[in-house]
C-alpha cells in the first residue's frame, strides 16, 4: 500500500530512472560531430527514418507527460507548524 512520498524519496526515484535508449543518441555517438558538420551524414535513409520515428514518438511522449503533470489536481501539504515562517498557520 502506498503511504506517501517525501521530496527526497521522489528525487532519489527520479535519479534511479535509467536513461532512454534512443537510436538517435547511438548514431550521434557513432558519428561524432566534425568541423562544419554538426550532424552525421551518410547514414542509410531507412536507419535515419527509424531513428526519426523513434525520436518523434519520444518527443510526443514527453510532451504528453508534461501536459498530464500540468493537469494534475493540486494536493494540500501536511507541513509541521514549526517549519512555517513565524509559526503562522491557517
Amino acid at each position: 500500500m502506498f503511504n506517501g512520498l517525501t521530496q527526497d524519496e521522489l528525487a532519489a526515484a527520479l535519479l534511479n530512472v535509467p536513461a532512454v535508449e534512443l537510436e538517435a543518441i547511438n548514431l550521434l555517438r557513432e558519428h561524432p560531430a566534425q568541423p562544419g558538420n554538426l550532424f552525421p551524414t551518410g547514414i542509410a535513409p531507412e536507419v535515419y527514418t527509424n531513428a526519426t520515428i523513434e525520436m518523434v514518438k519520444y518527443s510526443r511522449a514527453c510532451a504528453d507527460l508534461a501536459t498530464r503533470m500540468r493537469l494534475l489536481p493540486s494536493q494540500a501539504l501536511a507541513i509541521p507548524d514549526d517549519d512555517l515562517i513565524g509559526g503562522f498557520s491557517l
Binding site: 536513461a19 538517435a24 543518441i25 550521434l28 526519426t52 525520436m55 518527443s59
Partner: peptide, 14 residues
C-alpha cells in the same frame, strides 16, 4: 553528456 546529446538528437531528428 547525455542531456546535451539528447538535445542535439532532438534538434537533428525532430
Amino acid at each position: 553528456d547525455l542531456t546535451t546529446c539528447l538535445q542535439l538528437a532532438g534538434i537533428w531528428l525532430d
